[in-house]
Design a binder for these strands. Structure first.
Lengths: 116, 116
DNA sequence: AGCATAAGCATAGATTGTCTATGGATGGAA
DNA sequence: TTCCATCCATAGACAATCTATGCTTATGCT
């Protein structure tokens, strides 16, 4: 008991996480580490989107496996070791496609949800 | 081999199905059966959204269990037996909340995805 | 008469993607 | 010396969707 205080639903729309990560990398031009990406998304979405670490790191690994990002160890500004990621060419392409199909889906959903 | 001809990704944004169903019921005022709901969503989204039966019927059952819709057997226009669903008061309320939080999420995602 | 197709419901099982929970290490501030 | 922020990572639970399948009945075509 003593669970589920409000709602344990996901903080994001499932299926959008990888797109959000890729987009973050694109918009910042400088390579970013995972923690930084999480902060960035949280901040720019005005605290609405929160990316949990248990979702984030596996997602970054998937993206790296698929060759959409490239990661390497470096030292962060604060002196800790961190894995810095940047978009690959394939990642940039994939991002464009994902955004396009996301927007298409969105339009379709809004046609159902919002009165004409 | 000989698989995965194009992309086996979902035809909708996961997490939006129940909202789409509830909204369909709201907009049609008359009770609808599952098959009709599927056709409606497909049509109004201009073929972009396709709701598979394997997703639809379990979703309707979940909604009924939660008391958000009420279903009863009737005879359809074409003379077959069909389960007709209508929104309950609770369902109407839930729908409003879901739409609101969906739109909030959307805004947040678009802030990340679309350049300021 | 025979057959195909549309209308209609349903379940089982696989898969995917997220989450929670946990663990650990380090640096700086109180 | 304690705490918090920074940073990574994995395991396991869980929810939601999909594919695949099976069934029934009415209508239309040939």
């Amino acid at each position: 008991m003593a669970k589920d205080p409000v709602s344990r639903k996901s903080e994001l729309l499932p299926g959008t996480l990888e797109m959000l990560i890729l987009k973050s990398l694109e918009r910042n031009s400088e390579p970013m580490h995972g923690y930084g990406i999480a902060l960035y998304i949280k901040q720019i979405s005005r605290e609405v989107l929160r990316v949990e670490e248990g979702s984030l790191y596996p997602a970054l690994q998937r993206l790296a496996l698929k060759g959409l990002v490239h990661g390497e160890w470096r030292e962060s500004d604060t002196g800790r070791r961190a894995r810095y990621y940047k978009l690959t060419r394939a990642g940039r392409k994939q991002l464009m496609e994902e955004v396009a199909s996301f927007e298409k889906l969105l339009e379709a959903i809004l046609r159902v949800v919002q009165p004409a």
